[in-house]
């Protein structure tokens, strides 16, 4: 029994081992221990979605998961999505639609958008709005984000 926990996990394709305080949450671990500051901390109570990362293929709130719980997990952050090309189409569409302003919600928004697209989501605006409704954006008004996700889906179809 210890207030520190040894963990081994894979982050953005690289093996990581660390000894972390048991209370350290995943997003703080990613940001502070691994210097992956692309994931953001917006509310620390699971509502805003800025810390959303991909854990074993699922989008997950990084503030509602302990680093200790991520033992043996495979994690992808916004940096990983850029490096492995998974977010290429979304990046292009978000840029063209100006679907970000301050960019603080963007890492979570991309993770959620990717979850929708990879889950076979269609270019149905209402469905997209519902899907990203756990990700708070104070800047855009959301329309451009919906547009961008539609663009990616429609381009993939043609």
């Amino acid at each position: 029994m210890s207030r520190f926990v040894d963990i081994k996990l894979r982050v953005n394709g690289e093996d990581v081992s660390a000894t972390v305080p048991s209370r350290l949450n995943l997003v703080d671990f990613l940001r502070n221990d691994l210097c992956l500051t692309g994931s953001h901390v917006g509310c620390e109570h699971g509502v805003c979605g800025a810390c959303t990362v991909i854990v074993d293929g699922d989008s997950v709130r990084g503030c509602l998961m302990l680093a200790a719980q991520a033992n043996r997990a495979d994690i992808t952050t916004i940096e990983g999505l850029a490096d492995n090309g998974q977010s290429d189409a979304l990046q292009a569409a978000f840029t063209n639609r100006n679907a970000l302003q301050c960019g603080f919600c963007t890492p979570g928004m991309l993770a959620s958008a990717l979850g929708y697209i990879d889950g076979g989501g269609t270019a149905d605006r209402d469905a997209i709005r519902k899907h990203i409704s756990g990700n708070y954006c104070r800047c855009t008004g959301y329309q451009s984000i919906v547009d961008a996700i539609c663009d990616v889906i429609e381009e993939a179809r043609t």
Partner: peptide, 11 residues
């Protein structure tokens, strides 16, 4: 579908 959002339902 009414329970929170994807990222919450995933955990």
């Amino acid at each position: 579908p009414h329970i929170a959002h994807d990222a919450i339902r995933n955990r």
